[in-house]
Design a protein around this nucleic acid. Structure first.
Lengths: 238, 238
DNA sequence: TCTGCATTTTTGTCATACCAAATCGGAACG
DNA sequence: CGTTCCGATTTGGTATGACAAAAATGCAGA
């Protein structure tokens, strides 16, 4: 377990550069949005070859510290949670390929949103309740408009992630929708489903209004179980 | 939001190699544990320079698909959730540096474990209950042995992540302990704390035994709030 | 001041070379 | 026959130099 980190006896030269710029970015020596120096400048300054410099830059990019579009100077990235979650995207895509991967991730989502609706039922303030109400109205208005219903569906759930006022949560929701939307869109689109889902949203909202966490959790689990039964059909998973 | 992916108009040559090997790894053409071909071989086969090959390998490594130790041939990695979580480690370390980062992550942990103890109270089977009991006993025996108490503390919480039988969860617990342990260890180590924490574990366990999710959640929140008050003192966070 | 073009940088890629470490193969030995 | 050890070979890490294409820059003209 820990030996996984110990075995790094020898280091690549690029690793030094990476840690140096990592520090400079974190302590603000390199401001957000500022481009890194040109490769040749870096290589002269540190006395390494361009090979090493390029490797370091790529590593920084993979770590999400800088944004490196081809042919452009890498710019220091804003340290938000969005950037972090985006960097995780490729990894999770791999997870979705392992047997049962989609189901495991979906169950994690159920668990998390169950916790969120409980929290909302207990702590949602007027602003968030109003936002949910609006999202619910939008959702109802979008029934039988497949694309718009999909969007408003997502928007409704997003409010749940905003209630606890923890900036980590919205990016997680964003990630979920990104990763699962590809399958979601393959689902059979049927106005009947829209009605069912809207009623489920409505039930969740009411439970939150009544400050009843148990009812809210139950409603949400019903809702997502139903959704899962639709999603799973796009797989061969049991 | 979506433009973040659109602006990738031009592609790097290495990206092709990455996607090719990505496919080969996922569909099993390259078995797990098998090393990638030598760089020179790859470059001849695809007619690209070694620069490109090395860049591709580095990208694969960053994605967690292969494990590339310096001086060794990169080997295809087992597609488990551990690998994924480990790959995001650097990203999360960055998150811990943003203002309030530790607190946000800790609150996420509280929310998640609250959900876990509820689940345990409702669904934990005999095996998991026995495991928790054992962990609790180990924890008690380790009181006032700072290091061992720390380990058994973690072990107790780990059981919570094992109950839902979702392979995503244990790596998440592993990640939490990895990322937070550095701060944890800076905490004032006091046998009194051990007693308090053990009693808290005990209370959580009993609530689960009684199949009382509300009591379990309450006990856990008390426990982690207490822990947070210890952790926060190693920061200047309000 | 703004626009468009020509010039200069800068990145992406290639080719080649060298060193040091890992791997491989066979010899020496039990 | 298996094991150990040592040398040759392979392979990854790094350096250097070069060139095309795209981006940044600066200047001239409107």
């Amino acid at each position: 377990m820990t030996e996984a980190r110990i075995r790094n006896a020898r280091t690549r030269a690029a690793d030094n550069l990476v840690s140096i710029y990592e520090r400079q970015i974190i302590d603000g020596t390199l401001a957000v949005g500022e481009p890194l120096p040109p490769e040749r400048e870096i290589m002269q300054f540190f006395g390494v070859s361009r090979t090493v410099v390029r490797e370091a830059v790529q590593a920084l990019s993979a770590k999400g510290l800088v944004e490196a579009r081809p042919r452009f100077r890498p710019v220091v990235r804003t340290p938000g949670y969005d950037a972090a979650i985006e960097a995780v995207g490729s990894v999770v895509n791999r997870l979705l390929t392992v047997p049962g991967g989609v189901r495991n991730l979906f169950e994690l989502r159920i668990m998390m949103e169950a916790a969120l609706v409980r929290d909302a039922a207990l702590h949602a303030d007027k602003i968030h309740v109003a936002r949910m109400k609006q999202a619910l109205a939008d959702n109802e208005a979008a029934i039988s408009d497949s694309q718009r219903f999909f969007d408003t569906d997502i928007a409704f759930h997003r409010v749940l992630y905003e209630v606890p006022d923890n900036p980590v949560l919205p990016p997680i929701h964003q990630a979920y929708t990104d990763w699962l939307s590809s399958h979601w869109k393959r689902m059979p689109r049927d106005p009947e489903h829209d009605h069912v889902n809207y009623r489920a949203h409505s039930r969740i909202f009411e439970s939150i209004l009544f400050r009843d966490p148990d009812a809210a959790e139950l409603a949400l689990r019903d809702h997502l179980d139903y959704a899962w039964n639709q999603v799973r059909q796009t797989f061969a998973e049991p």
